[in-house]
Amino acid sequence: MIPAAFDYVRVDSVDAAVAALTEHGDDAKLLAGGHSLLPLMKLRLAFPSVLIDIGRIEGLSYVRQEGDQVAIGALTRHCDVNASPELARHAPLLAYVAGKVGDPQVRHRGTIGGSIAHADPASDLPAAVLALGGEMVVTGPSGQRVIPATEFFTGFLETAMSPEEMLTEIRVPTATAGHSYQKFVRRAQDWAMVGVAVARYDGTTGVSLVNMGPTPLRAAAVESALASGASAADAAEVADQDSEPTGDANASPEFRRHLAKVLTRRALEEAGL
């Protein structure tokens, strides 16, 4: 399969990327590792007329601890997030989840920024950043702004970024009190039929759901049940509350709701609750 024709533009700075986005508007897409975008283009589900390759911008692949946060450059690849000693120490959920994305070949190319900006509700990393209560730093023509993860995912493959903005950094709080990621797949390397991410930090527990609606979802009902002292098993019973799972060849909505509860219980228990 071959993508529809497009013009390829390579940029070497964030400013140049933003300028190119501003020039081409909705017709342009940013290309990092390309492992979300190129498959869609090959299936002709996406057909941007301009591809802006940001993959060679220097200085956007890093993991840095800054106070009580860890900052991750948007171009950090999944394999590097997975192998980061800083993340293993300060936000182990994120390192673990990055190692569960796709397969080694995919993790050699895909980037955390690309995965999050693509905002696929079946993706692993958006849910992990959501469970961690992270935030996204985006850069546009008028400078930087910070969007909390809870406000970032606005619809199916849609985010709070405007067409001329670029995701440049992801920040998550240090979270070392326990974590788990439960991903249910029929075959190795598949997208999650349902996934549950749990991160414990600052005396709270963040819980998020993969593929239980048009966006990655924070399992607010589970979080408040836990905050009121419910057991892991009891809290997990409300895991599907306010979710809108769809049915497809892999699972019915009812099966997804069941999976969300079972996986939430397992995740909470593995996280030490």
């Binding site: 390829y8 390579r10 290309l31 390309g34 190129l38 498959p39 090959k42 390759d53 070949q105 050699h108």
Partner: peptide, 16 residues
Amino acid sequence: IMNGESVKSCTVLAAQ
């Protein structure tokens, strides 16, 4: 193998 790492060449542009 690109730059010492395995990649799936159906999902990499020649331009990349």
